[in-house]
Design a binder for these strands. Structure first.
Length: 463
DNA sequence: CATTATGGAACGCAACTACC
DNA sequence: GGTAGTTGCGTTCCATAATG
C-alpha cells in the first residue's frame, strides 16, 4: 500500500472508539511531551493499518504474535513504541481477551515498570540532579586552585585538579599510577605521554620525592572532598563531578574540531566567530583572508572580596600576605558615600512628611546634591512656603563632629546675606532604628558648634 | 514553495554491573 | 563503599514524503 493511500493521524483518531482514545491518551501520559506525536502516530498506525481494529479492547495475543513474531528483541524505534503499547494494554487490563500474554510477561512486573517510568519522569523534571558543577561552584573552586601557596596539601589539591580537569587524565591513572617517581626535570611521564608541568608543581614533587612511600595521590577522593570544603561548596566534591564538568565545559573549535576548556583565554574571536588560539593564529597568517582578531574579555571574577583561606597557606605565605595587605581606601570611601546618600534619603522623607497637606510637598528637590557646586543638598520649604536650603551631614556613629567644605560654608554665608535660609541637618546613628537629627540653623553664627579650619571645616559640638 | 507528518538513527541519561 | 564502564531505553534530530 502506498503511503498516500494511508490516512493521517487526525483521520484515524476520528475512527477510533471513545474508549480507545482514552486508553491511548492514558498510555501517552507515561512519556515525555516531545515523543508523544511520534508515539501517537505509531499506535494509531498499529491499530488502524496493521490490526484493523477500532477498539483496543479487541486486541489479543494473536495480534501481538502477528506484529512481533520474534518477540521484543532488536526493534526499531517505531516498533518499540508498538511493543510498549501491547505491554500497556496487558498491564492495565485493557483487553477483553488477554490470554497468551501471561506466557511472556508478568502483569505485576509490567505494571510496576510503567509506574516507575512516570515516577522517574517526575523526578527528572522536579529535581534535575546535576553531577556537573555550576559556574558558581566552578568559580569558587577556581579561587582555591589559583591560590599561591607552598603548603604541600594545597599543592597536591591543585595538582589533582590540574590533572583531572585541565589534562583530562583518568581518575584511576592519577590515583594508582602517578607518583613522584614519574616526575623528573619538570616533566611528568604519564600514560598520555610526557607533560611539562607548571613550576609550582616542581617544588611539590621534590617534597614528595623525599618520602619513601605515600608519594602519590591515592587519597585523591579526600583531596577533592577537601577542595570542595575549602571552596565552600554545598555538596561533596567527587572525582566523577570533576570529570563530568570537564566534559561539559569543553568547547569544540568549529574550525579545527579540537576541544578546549571554555576558559576565555583559550579562545579568540575571529570576525565575530569564536575559534581556538591556534586557529586564530593561523587565520591571522593567511594574508588573503581579512581577519579581525579580538581577545575575548576575561570573565574571571576578581577575588578582592575573597575571605582568607588560611588553611590553604603555609605559615610563611600567610604572614607575607597579611604584611602586604593594603588598606582598602576605595572600599572605605564607597561606604562613606553610601552612608551620605542614606542620610539624604532620610532627610528628604522627613521633609515630605513635614509638608504633608501643603502644596509644597511636591516641590521638595533632592536632586541638588548631585552637583557639589550648589553648596547644599536638598531644597525644601517651611510649611508657610519659605525655601529651605538643607545641607545634610551623616554619620553612622554618635560623635558630635562632621566636616563642612569651604564651598558649603561660603554658600551658607552668602545665602544669609541674601536673606535666604541655609540649614545643616546633622543625622547621627543613621544605621540604627532611631537616627538622631540635629538642626543647625545658622552654621556660621551658632553657639552650639565650633568650626575649626583644616582643609575643610571641622565642626564640633560644644559640651 | 512552505509546512506538516512520518520513520530511522544518533544521542544522552540513568540504572546496572564489574571492579578495586 | 564508591567509581568507571556498560547497557537499555526514551528523546531529539534529520531526511523525506505528503499536503496546502
Amino acid at each position: 500500500m502506498a503511503i498516500k493511500d494511508k490516512l493521517n493521524a487526525e483521520d484515524i483518531e476520528a475512527l477510533l472508539s471513545e474508549n480507545s482514545k482514552q486508553v491511548i491518551e492514558n498510555f501517552l501520559t507515561y512519556y515525555g511531551d516531545s515523543s508523544k506525536a511520534n508515539m501517537r502516530s505509531s499506535v494509531y498506525r498499529l491499530l488502524y493499518h496493521e490490526l484493523v481494529k477500532d477498539d483496543v479492547s479487541k486486541v489479543n495475543f494473536e495480534d501481538y504474535l502477528k506484529i512481533f513474531p520474534n518477540g521484543g528483541k532488536n526493534l526499531s524505534t517505531q516498533k518499540i513504541y508498538r511493543h510498549s503499547f501491547f505491554k500497556f494494554l496487558y498491564a492495565f487490563d485493557h483487553m477483553k481477551m488477554p490470554f497468551g500474554f501471561e506466557t511472556i510477561w508478568i502483569k505485576e512486573h509490567e505494571n510496576k515498570q510503567f509506574i516507575q517510568l512516570k515516577e522517574r519522569k517526575e523526578k527528572v523534571t522536579k529535581e534535575k540532579p546535576r553531577k556537573t558543577l555550576t559556574i558558581e561552584e566552578l568559580t569558587k573552586i577556581q579561587k582555591v586552585i589559583e591560590t599561591e601557596s607552598t603548603k604541600l596539601e594545597t599543592l597536591k589539591i591543585q595538582f589533582c585538579w590540574y590533572c583531572i580537569f585541565e589534562l583530562g587524565i583518568d581518575v584511576d591513572e592519577l590515583k594508582l599510577n602517578i607518583t613522584s617517581d614519574n616526575f623528573s626535570d619538570g616533566i611528568l611521564i604519564a600514560k598520555e605521554g610526557s607533560i611539562k608541568l607548571p613550576e609550582k608543581f616542581h617544588y611539590m614533587f621534590e617534597m614528595l620525592k623525599e618520602r619513601d612511600e605515600r608519594n602519590g595521590f591515592a587519597t585523591l577522593n579526600d583531596l577533592f572532598e577537601n577542595l570542595g570544603q575549602y571552596a565552600k561548596l554545598e555538596r561533596k566534591l567527587l572525582p566523577v563531578m570533576v570529570k563530568l564538568t570537564r566534559k561539559d565545559y569543553m568547547v569544540t573549535c568549529g574550525n579545527c574540531g579540537k576541544k578546549y576548556t571554555n576558559l576565555s583565554h583559550n579562545w579568540r574571536s575571529v570576525n565575530n566567530r569564536i575559534v581556538c588560539l591556534d586557529c586564530a593564529e593561523s587565520l591571522k597568517k593567511k594574508l588573503n583572508f581579512e581577519v579581525e582578531v579580538v581577545d575575548i574579555e576575561n570573565t574571571n571574577l576578581n577575588d578582592s572580596d575573597n575571605n582568607e583561606l588560611s588553611f590553604l597557606y603555609a605559615y610563611a605565605d600567610l604572614k607575607r600576605k597579611i604584611q602586604s595587605k593594603p588598606i582598602d581606601f576605595l572600599k572605605l570611601h564607597e561606604l562613606q558615600i553610601e552612608i551620605g546618600e542614606l542620610g539624604e534619603k532620610y532627610v528628604y522623607e522627613r521633609e515630605c512628611k513635614n509638608l504633608m497637606g501643603t502644596k509644597y510637598i511636591n516641590m521638595v528637590d533632592d536632586s541638588i546634591a548631585g552637583n557639589p557646586k550648589n553648596g547644599y543638598d536638598i531644597l525644601s520649604y517651611t510649611r508657610d512656603g519659605k525655601p529651605l536650603h538643607i545641607e545634610v551631614k551623616t554619620t553612622s556613629g554618635s560623635e558630635d563632629k562632621f566636616f563642612l567644605s569651604n564651598n558649603e560654608l561660603q554658600t551658607a554665608k552668602k545665602m544669609k546675606d541674601e536673606g535666604l535660609i541655609y540649614v545643616v541637618y546633622f543625622v547621627k546613628r543613621i544605621l540604627s532604628d532611631n537616627p538622631e537629627l540635629n538642626i543647625i540653623g545658622d552654621i556660621s553664627m551658632n553657639k552650639e558648634y565650633v568650626l575649626e579650619e583644616l582643609r575643610s571645616w571641622k565642626v564640633t559640638k560644644v559640651h
